[in-house]
Write a protein that binds this DNA or RNA. Sequence first.
DNA 1: CTCCACATGTAACCGGTTACATGATTTT
DNA 2: AAAATCATGTAACCGGTTACATGTGGAG
Lengths: 187, 187
Amino acid sequence: MLKFAILGFLNYRPLSGYDLEQQLRVSTAHFWYAGLSQIYMTLKKLEADGLVVSEVQEQEKRPDKRIYTITADGKAEFGEWLAQPVNKVEPTKSTLLLKLFFARPVGRDAVLHQLRMMLQAYRGKLTEYTGGLPAEASEMLASQPELQDDSIMWGIVQDFGIRYAEMAIAWLEDAIHTIETHFSEDV
Amino acid sequence: MLKFAILGFLNYRPLSGYDLEQQLRVSTAHFWYAGLSQIYMTLKKLEADGLVVSEVQEQEKRPDKRIYTITADGKAEFGEWLAQPVNKVEPTKSTLLLKLFFARPVGRDAVLHQLRMMLQAYRGKLTEYTGGLPAEASEMLASQPELQDDSIMWGIVQDFGIRYAEMAIAWLEDAIHTIETHFSEDV
DNA sequence: CTCCACATGTAACCGGTTACATGATTTT
DNA sequence: AAAATCATGTAACCGGTTACATGTGGAG
């Protein structure tokens, strides 16, 4: 639900749709991202439902911005969502795992090639994640010490991304090794 | 794309919609599951597109079954999909991580409670996954030794599930510890 | 007698992706 | 001169979820 991601960010401060996309990109991209078009649509719906209000802010030498602010209703609905626990392991869909499951007919070399590409991709992700908090977040933290508890949560979430990437890398390395030594076909 | 999961299973042998649901449940559930209604809809579309054909098989003391068989066109399209590599890290959506990211206002105790519940859930999943291949798959393997290479891929995919659960458990344990020792609020 | 397994479907909805459309300013 | 950044939107499509609808036979 992108709706709640947006309300969450607007709960800190008012932002435009364009700003929100950047927020998502720098802070939640690895577990929740949305393109601009979806953001604009969602904001429109949120405003229609009275959960946010907007006003146009004129800018010189830049296009006008429409700044959205969360309303009391919006805060209430966001709080309700937040408090409601996630009670089950969320079902995931992985095209990669699905393909791998059926991959035998494509043959040893093609599978190995695929896995090596994925390995590279995850190594890239890992160095990206271990870069630490982006400057923006650090600034925000320094200027608002009341965000300390928030930053604990941000760290935990970021840690998940790092561990996930590390897990995926180790798994891919071992998978490549297993296939190299056990997969019989080499047509 | 459930479509390809279905073609993948039908590529081994003809099955009914009901059979397919069971296949998904015992072998791909942790990275690809679909309910019966979606399976039936997809099968209908697949047949309309000429990728599968069906015939009704009458049964005594059980409702009739509609058995689906993959066609040459179906095999071709499946093979094409299989060969096409996954070139990027797939974007994921995690409600749990999103909630955690914004979780500060719900307070220390509620967050800890949520995390402990998730921990329990993942521990359950792990014992479920480490139970080894279900009897069905073992039977199929024993009776058809040409499935050896397939079984290597099945093992790799299953291994991912195990490692994922282990990673999630360790992460949750550490997250709980971090919050217990650093989260200031205890309203 | 009730619940579970077997067996197949339809319809409404919803969240998300992709493509399209526009246009100024700044950087390379 | 071209490409990237800033900035906002519409429309078509698509895959998946949930709810609804129906019916038999066997097990507890």
